[in-house]
Design a protein around this nucleic acid. Sequence first.
DNA 1: GTGCGAGTCGTAAACGTTTACGAATCCCCA
DNA 2: TGGGGATTCGTAAACGTTTACGACTCGCAC
Lengths: 345, 345
Amino acid sequence: MTGIRRLAQQLNVSIGTVSRALNGKPDVNEETRRRVVEAAAAIGYVPNQAGRSLRKGSTGVVGFMMQTGPQITGEGDVFFMSVFDGVQTVFARHQLDLVALLCSSEEDPEAYMQRVVARGFADALIISATKRVDHRIDFISSRKIPFIALGRSETDAGHPWLDLDFEGMAEVGVSRLIAKGHRRIGVFAPRDDTNLGFVFVDAYRKVLERHGIGFDANMVFRAPPNERGGHQIAHAIAAMPADRRPTGFVLTNEVMCVGFYNGLHEVGLVPGKTFAIIGRDSPQAHYLVPKLTCFRLSLRDLGITLAESLLATMPAYAEAYPLGVVRKVVPLELVPGDSDMALPG
Amino acid sequence: MTGIRRLAQQLNVSIGTVSRALNGKPDVNEETRRRVVEAAAAIGYVPNQAGRSLRKGSTGVVGFMMQTGPQITGEGDVFFMSVFDGVQTVFARHQLDLVALLCSSEEDPEAYMQRVVARGFADALIISATKRVDHRIDFISSRKIPFIALGRSETDAGHPWLDLDFEGMAEVGVSRLIAKGHRRIGVFAPRDDTNLGFVFVDAYRKVLERHGIGFDANMVFRAPPNERGGHQIAHAIAAMPADRRPTGFVLTNEVMCVGFYNGLHEVGLVPGKTFAIIGRDSPQAHYLVPKLTCFRLSLRDLGITLAESLLATMPAYAEAYPLGVVRKVVPLELVPGDSDMALPG
DNA sequence: GTGCGAGTCGTAAACGTTTACGAATCCCCA
DNA sequence: TGGGGATTCGTAAACGTTTACGACTCGCAC
């Protein structure tokens, strides 16, 4: 005997009434509803997802697409976990569930996405780690399934996205170092084709030009966006002649500064003394000495905004979130520390 | 016009034939199958998941349950991502999909699991971060849904589990330090009720006793299992009188040693010189100086074993994986580095 | 007494797929 | 020629739910 049918029989009502009672439909007696809800809780009945979503044509789940594999994302688990948490507090209000869709490193991300949407696995998607040109965006928007990207891309389907304010970080960070007397200012950028590197380096270049400082490609250091990358760069810098090294750095990655600090220590260069460093806040960076001057944002709030912006594009929820198509950068706050000393002289 | 019906009409065959062709059933003409497969690819038809799983009673997805939230897991994203990757290479052979089920920090994990299984969201589950007594295990095994735990628990439902060989790490690590002349050997353990702390500390105690060294509760350092925790412990140790400090440490967490190294440096104590340290291998720990003597295992292989052990308990796949109920620890290999010097004298 | 609206509930169709069953065709051999 | 097996395919039921529709009761006003 199937779930809802058993419950109905036990209560001597029809399955229609049970369904209506459980789904909060208006045309059911409050006393009946109470009995149904109690009985359902008693036997632990929960509507079968397959039956429900077959009938309704929607699944009640939103997928967050991620790549798995040994390569490091650059944003630690803390990043995603905190964002997830924010997303879920919004979704919980609407009985939506968030699941992470894990695309294995052996599968093509686009093919994977194709499977996911064609199958009707999720009602909407969140994609991250956007590439500079990202075919996933073309595909997903051609399929008319609601989605939002965490990270800009040059592939523009008029779709909603959210991104960190890399321009702002370049603007504030570089200006600050310039004001403190620095002229050779280095930045870190990922070597791969994720979009953020381009955005940030572009903004960096503009700020320099505005201050009449020429752009020098040697001041852009490329390495994998993880702690090891920061460590590598430290050693690369140590290998440069001292008078051609940058005197200050701005980096936007959460964990690279940890490796950078470590690497510098190894070669006898000292953060906040030999070099000024402005980085990104993170739990790992918290205990660095000297205290890192860093950009901070609430990841949970980011998740909340992400969720609300996504709901705004889903017909069933749009009226509750009249935000239109959200495409915006979220600002970060500069938290002064002791790592960005002024240049003596 | 529905998916399969449209395809059938277009090809002038029945929907039954289409379904059989796509599912590799034997009773369909090879020529017909070819036509169907081609046409399906052409219009991008993929069977609707809801319809399919309603009929079949299974979903083809396996859920990996995780908690989200700002708290750090102790195992970085690299840990999970690599394990996922291993799991998926096995699942791919059977058209199974892995998704991460994200239990928000605001929801009770047991209630969440209840929802997931009652809804029929996944065919099987992988649970991690097992508590010493874990009600999820009682519940899930009462529901007869296949699952495996990554991490032992005292809650024993005769269920399959996989765990790291904490006894082995205690045995090998502590013996090694003793052989190198150390007598006051410290270990790190999480403060919370995850199971691994108990297992490891128990084994640690036994090894000491076997070598005639008394157990001293002050040698067990408790802190959150993340980098900050390692950092905290470094400062706690600096605050101890030098002659009562441990002279060597064994720690099983992937990232705590990074914070530990950093913290020690801050207070002028030097890893591999003042203290012998044996830790866990991880990308973050790779560039530590002096090179960390550490326990290593292949996370991808761990994922593969995890997946195969789970399949062994699923009726539909059991015959291909005749492993029985897998309950075992996976060994780690000790990779000598320069951080575990012998005690002079 | 009749009619009407509000409140409550049962009936049955529909969602898209898989699969048991049986029918049709063809080939081969007695 | 007829029968039987193999091959291929169509038909229709089933999976568990939601919801449009209509039926019924009750109270009240006319």
